[in-house]
Amino acid sequence: MAAIDPSNQGLRLATRYAVLTLIAVIFIFPLVFMVMSSFKPDLQLLRDTGSFRAFLPVGDLSLNNYAAAFDRAPVATFVFNSVLVTGLTVLLSLFFCSLAAFSFVFLNWRGRNIALSIIIATLIVPFETIAIPLLLLVSKLPWIGWEGLEWGWLNSYRVQIIPWIADGLTIFLFVQYFKDLPRELIEASRVEGASWWQIYIKVVMPLSGPVLATAAILKFLVMYNQYLWPLIVVQEESYRPVMVGLQYFFQLNIAWGEVMAYLTLITVPVLAFYLVLQKAFIASIASTGVKG
């Protein structure tokens, strides 16, 4: 059989890699453009945009744009704020949304279907359309802090975190995944006398590596790219996140090199997060051995 012929095998392998690489090129080029441009002075950067030079480290390269970016804006503060807000929201979201989805899929309770329908309907509401009502709402909410009861959530981390913890998409993601888990496993544990909480922690969560990783990545992206919401609820620079910070670079004459340097800097945390999770994601599949 031809498939056993080693040279043929090698050819097929090479074709596979060629296809994978070709697709990879299509997907990676704007990032290469962004990173390469961040090392170039503005005029050269703009001249290069029409040709393949845009993707090559050619011409007058330096770290000047990075230095200038740090001079222009408190980049570290913005990245810190975004990572903090995003990290906390992702953690809280994974917990509350998976818990709710667990209840929707595995438990029977009155009102379950209506509640789930409402949650799925919220998927349809684009955030832009509720931003102003939400702003009016959070500006009047109470909070108990170090100084006792206060009113209004503006200018804080909580206003950037709490409204975003639960969302229809994340719950829906968990629901669809949990539906594929074997119910016998849960019912067996129930027969053995495990509490629902124990089943959630000890049976369902260990099987949920892939969906946790997926939900975490998606939530991370949504949170890290927040713009409109922090813009309207945060007036103090010390709480501003990265995408609002991007506006610091759009002056009348845009310094494109600095923009690219800033974009490169703020993309690093997302990429790192994805790469780390991807590893966890693979590991979780290997360890659970997947169920059927």
Binding site: I132, L135, L136, S139, G152, L154, L231, I232, V233, Q235, E236, E237, V244, G245, Q247, Y248, F250, Q251
Partner: peptide, 21 residues
Amino acid sequence: LESFPQGAYNDSVVAAALAGN
């Protein structure tokens, strides 16, 4: 003083005014 990036300034003021801030 609190400084805002120009592109976001008007939206920030309108939002703050709505929220009484």
